[in-house]
Amino acid sequence: MKVGLFIPCYINQLYPQVGKATIELLERLQVEVIYPSGQTCCGQPMANSGYEYESVGTCNNFVENFKGFDYIVTPSGSCAYHVKKHYDIIPQTDAVTKVRNTIYELCDFLVNVLEVKNVGARFPYKVGIHKSCHGLRGLRLGSCSEKVTEPYSHIGTLLKEVLGTEIIELSRKDECCGFGGTFAVTEEAISVKMGKDRIQDHLNNGAEVITATDTSCLMHLEGLVTRNKQPLKIRHIAEILNSVVD
């Protein structure tokens, strides 16, 4: 099994530790991981701002880099969702269809392709899970509070097996954090308020750490936590799953 690793543009530049954790975790699970060097971005920042047509070159570059793999894995539900849902703006060649069908968010890949639950991690903290919306309601990485379905959560399944981790329950299980790409600046007031409210929910329920499948949400929450000097750590799920027992 040959896996191509997609590291979203902002993780590459601002949160390399998330990329490192992802690759180390996958390698520890005996997966052959390759990081194609010509990758940049999935095109989502332009497309969600209404400039899908400016993202065509980016989409093509993505497909070019990833068409040769059995699976594409990325520590971002949002990017995986974008490729799956919105890559209909470029001609649907075999390569494009393949890429769209084989891209997985990290937790999804672990639970549903590798079929592992316990990755041998230890993380002795009270953790609140922020269920990033695109992964949740786009990729259905877990049950959604609006729908009447059996409860499940891929990120929860993995976290439950982590030694020492206590998952805390939130009052609002899956409300949006307010990042939303350019929304974070064009609707600054609401974006900030939504973020503050999410953080408060985690604090009220005793979280020490907030985790998620998406670094974009976490960057927004971390920006607020740091500014307001709140007693919370922000960790991407890959970082937690890669905290190995010595």
Binding site: I7, G19, S37, E188, V192, G223
Partner: peptide
């Protein structure tokens, strides 16, 4: 920088993931 009105930006790391990988 509208982002920074009420939020901090992440501290820029010295090397990107790309550089680390290479």
């Amino acid at each position: 920088n509208v982002w920074g009105k009420e939020r901090d930006l992440p501290l820029g790391p010295t090397e990107s993931f790309d550089e680390w990988y290479k």
